[in-house]
Write a protein that binds this DNA or RNA. Structure first.
Lengths: 343, 343
DNA sequence: TTGTATGCGTTATCAT
DNA sequence: ATGATAACGCATACAA
């Protein structure tokens, strides 16, 4: 138990050195001795350790960073921490970061391109040791700029990125949506389908829509234009869409929805309007967020293991931080249909 | 549009100065000119700006921090980003931080004291400009140490902290639970109550339990010991408790639960065991997380406005960062019963 | 094994 | 209005 008195100033290495009766670099040496190549006498080591204890010395990260060009900090950009899909990603990233002795900076983009660019600007000054970008709008060109300007390892979640120096975790969501939609058609006998997507400008938008349409076309079906909706990834957005749907004369018998949050909102609105799920309308979501098991009927959805995604992203990043010359890697994360009661 | 070429090295002020044909401090002046007290000729200003543009110069935060003792970084410790109550807090903190030009570092404690202490250690080296602690285990003594050693503004969510230099946002949860329990007894006619709490070592544990017992005693009721349970704040924990309850001969007719996540788990387990809610057992939660409106029956709960809490914490912090000599302030955040269908 | 000297990129205090 | 110069706290090359 050290007894922290009313120290107004934080102790520096020089203070420690003076107290221990050695030079400042010696203090640095005993504190940073990882490589046994340098040897230090037991006597001085003990003196230094004692002085460190007594003064409650902590290294100053700013000074260390300036000197070493390392910050022990990684930056994470996620779309929306408020969407239950992301906290587990953040969580697992933080957990491996902690193990590695790194702190983590987090920012939200709200899926907005401008915010992602701002984040990149911020990073260029902050000079972190690693960057993780989760569903991003950023183009390969943007990433290339970010990489060449910062020379910092980057890993991203997103199929659309292909850059020799950035690692990616991806999911074959086009195929997953195709399979889920086909299942709806072939196994469950639906022929009047609906779709809730997101704007084409967002990376998963076109891919998932394409998967949906591929299944539709393969089954030689058509979809009424008013049954193809566009949301904003949020539950409230889905709810709003659902409320509008209630005004239509005929509803699809099944909806494929681009993410769970919107699927939840859609279900809630439909149910409030007296529509029975799955009897009148079946719903499939995407992500398998915790709420999918809470809503009734429990939501059939395409699961993504968000904790796994976080671990993969973090491990790729730390590996590259150790060895920046690694060839770029792509790890697939499985996306499987989990059938519950909403279909 | 700057054209970032293959720059391996980030440009420094010296590079800018050389290109602009001025001295390095001059560059610093034009870049930091907030106070008009210092004047610079338009000509040099333009030259410098041009050079900055051309080189894509970004200030190096590590160097700046070392010099100014400011990091433009705040640190946030939250219990569990995975519990839906917290993301909105993180979100609003980040949003005000961004407005103020600050980045935010986030860590999870999992409600574990040891982790909170580790976080404090980490901060002592990292030297952030401000610290926000959300439901904490940390004692006034710990906070006092943290404050005197870092001399950094701190704001916390938690009634139990009373320190002249730290600002707190608090809720009268003892009273809120008392009222909710009383409502259950007086308005809804329950007399066989149950309680799901958390260990006494966690700050809200004793207070909320006390509120519950105060209502029980005021109504001159008793509670069966097997109806007083202890969980861990998680949905899975609540579910487990619920599963065990199913083995009992008699259940309470109403449960007061310390947080929504556990209440959700309890409801799910009970429902899976054939117990009807609210007919057989009524349930009240605490927090009003989004899932409370998704589960059926919708959960009656004591609402906390987590976004508001985040804003309050952040504003208190930034005010103190501007003026460290402010007297310590305590802001109450309202906790009101919102009646839905689980009671 | 340890001490001296240097520089990381800023900001700030002097001069001029 | 601007240029030298120093200093923030640390890690490292070099000397001893």
């Amino acid at each position: 138990m050290s007894t922290p008195t009313k120290t107004k100033k934080l102790a520096t290495m020089r203070d420690v050195a003076k107290l221990a009766g050695v030079s400042q670099p010696t203090v640095s040496r005993v504190l940073n001795q990882k490589d046994t190549s340098i040897s230090i006498s037991d006597e001085t080591r003990e003196k230094v350790i004692a002085a460190v204890e007594q003064l409650g010395y902590r290294p100053n990260m700013a000074a260390r960073s300036l000197r070493t060009q390392k910050t022990k900090l990684i930056a994470v950009l996620i779309a929306d921490i408020t969407n239950s899909f992301y906290p587990h990603i953040a969580r697992s990233i933080q957990s491996v970061a902690r193990e590695e002795g790194y702190d983590v900076m987090i920012a939200n983009s709200d899926h907005i391109y401008q915010n992602e660019l701002l984040f990149c600007e911020s990073i260029k000054s902050r000079a972190v040791d690693g960057i993780i970008l989760v569903p991003i709008h950023l183009t390969e060109h943007d990433l290339h700029d970010l990489y060449t300007q910062t020379n910092t390892p980057i890993s991203v979640l997103g199929q659309h990125i292909n850059h020799p120096k950035v690692d990616v975790v991806w999911a074959d969501d086009e195929e997953a949506v195709f399979k889920a939609t086909s299942w709806l058609i072939q196994e469950k006998g639906h022929s009047r389908l609906g779709y809730v997507g997101v704007p084409d400008t967002l990376p998963p938008g076109p891919r998932r829509y394409k998967g949906f349409m591929r299944a539709i076309e393969k089954a030689q079906l058509t979809v009424a234009p008013e049954h193809i909706l566009e949301g904003d990834f949020t539950l409230e957005g889905g709810r709003h869409l659902g409320q509008n749907l209630l005004k239509l004369d005929t509803l699809p018998t099944a909806f494929m929805v681009t993410n769970d949050a919107m699927a939840l909102g859609l279900m809630l609105a439909l149910q409030e309007g007296g529509v029975r799920i799955p009897e009148d309308v079946a719903v499939i979501g995407y992500d398998d967020i915790p709420e999918a098991r809470i809503i009734r009927p429990a939501l059939t959805t395409i699961e993504q293991n968000s904790a796994d995604i976080g671990y993969k992203l973090a491990h790729l990043l730390f590996e590259r931080m150790e060895n920046p010359d690694l060839p770029s890697r792509r790890l697939e994360t499985p996306n499987n249909l989990v059938i519950r009661d909403s279909t």
